[in-house]
Simulated scan of single mutants.
Amino acid sequence: MKNENLSVQFINVSAENAGQRIDNFLCNRQLKHVPKSMIYCIMRKGKIRVNKKRIKPDYKLEEGDQIRLPPVHIAKSTNQTVSPKLEKVASLNEAILYEDDYILVLNKPSGTAVHGGSGLSFGIIEGLRALRPEARFLELVHRLDRDTSGVLLVAKKRSALLTLHEQLRKRSMQKDYLILVRGSWPSNLKVVQAPLLKKILHSGERVVRVSSEGKPSETLFKVEERFSFATLVKASPVTGRTHQIRVHALHAGHPIAFDGRCGERDFDSQLENTGLRRLFLHAAALVFTHPNSGKTLRLEAPLDDALNRCIKVLRQRKNKID
């Protein structure tokens, strides 16, 4: 590794980059070797400016905006490949669910971040770029938390990215998740509407809670299967807030299994002999309009071995009781 100390930079936003959040733009492009916590820190201090004004991380860039970046100490790798993680790169081939000239969809494994940064040298997007070195463009359409598995959509063209982002803004893209929650989820509890407030700590960690000061948030829930002390539920977020499903499930009184942020240890301990050790939050299906053909696509991601094994053991327990 070698370090490079940059001077003040001024970046003019092109039409291609318009519509992106500034934190995503910086993390994925201009400052992708800088820890996210540092980026958020210098943004809070007002050292990153757009059109000479202070901005927040969720500011949406517009064509013609001028971004001012202060001198930032960047750790640059002397090796441009992701060689320490070759086995993970190779495994991404098996995770691909669908691919054409415009999009790539994969079943993201739990425990892998969607992008590197904040001390992580490897992420899904870095892995895909190593796997497809000839690809001129590969960008995440949306994100999944590191511990969440399931359908992840990647654009292979800027035009596709913009079209798919527009679907997200209009809420015409449907996302269905499977969660395992504590207790018996009420059949009549089909919608949770609770405003969510997000705070970014000095460490860069995002903390989300229900608050009247937060943004309107809505999630649809449907019971899929009941067990003796848990319920498998389909969760479909209408809005796309950070950690929305986790916080709404907790707000309803039914925390998700092995959720390090909003979970409950007693519930997790009941699942010990199922072999489960990961968050039971899986992006099971994604329905959207193809950015080129205009056809409606529904792509589904199967549960991994750990989640399938957990369900199998819970079914066996239930059958013994019944």
Score class of each variant (00 low, 15 high):
residue 3 N to Y: 04
residue 4 E to D: 01
residue 4 E to T: 00
residue 5 N to R: 03
residue 16 E to A: 08
residue 20 Q to L: 13
residue 21 R to K: 05
residue 23 D to Q: 05
residue 24 N to M: 05
residue 26 L to G: 09
residue 28 N to W: 09
residue 36 K to F: 13
residue 37 S to W: 01
residue 38 M to K: 07
residue 40 Y to M: 07
residue 44 R to M: 08
residue 45 K to C: 05
residue 45 K to D: 14
residue 69 L to M: 06
residue 77 S to P: 02
residue 78 T to D: 13
residue 87 E to T: 04
residue 89 V to R: 06
residue 91 S to L: 01
residue 99 E to N: 04
residue 99 E to D: 03
residue 104 L to Q: 02
residue 108 K to T: 05
residue 110 S to Y: 00
residue 114 V to P: 15
residue 114 V to F: 14
residue 114 V to K: 05
residue 120 L to E: 13
residue 120 L to W: 07
residue 121 S to I: 06
residue 127 G to R: 02
residue 128 L to Y: 06
residue 128 L to Q: 10
residue 132 R to Q: 04
residue 133 P to I: 11
residue 137 F to C: 00
residue 140 L to W: 11
residue 141 V to W: 14
residue 141 V to L: 01
residue 146 R to D: 03
residue 148 T to Q: 02
residue 156 K to W: 11
residue 157 K to M: 09
residue 158 R to M: 12
residue 158 R to A: 14
residue 159 S to F: 15
residue 164 L to E: 08
residue 170 K to P: 06
residue 177 Y to D: 14
residue 182 R to D: 15
residue 186 P to Y: 12
residue 187 S to L: 11
residue 191 V to D: 13
residue 195 P to R: 04
residue 195 P to H: 06
residue 198 K to Q: 15
residue 199 K to E: 06
residue 203 S to R: 08
residue 212 S to R: 02
residue 213 E to R: 10
residue 216 P to S: 08
residue 221 F to G: 14
residue 223 V to C: 07
residue 226 R to W: 01
residue 230 A to C: 01
residue 233 V to C: 12
residue 247 V to F: 02
residue 249 A to L: 05
residue 251 H to E: 15
residue 251 H to K: 12
residue 253 G to Q: 14
residue 253 G to W: 00
residue 257 A to T: 00
residue 261 R to I: 00
residue 274 T to F: 09
residue 276 L to V: 05
residue 277 R to E: 09
residue 277 R to I: 04
residue 284 A to C: 08
residue 284 A to I: 05
residue 285 A to I: 08
residue 292 N to M: 04
residue 296 T to N: 05
residue 297 L to T: 04
residue 302 P to N: 00
residue 305 D to C: 03
residue 309 R to H: 15
residue 312 K to L: 11
residue 313 V to A: 05
residue 313 V to E: 13
residue 317 R to K: 02
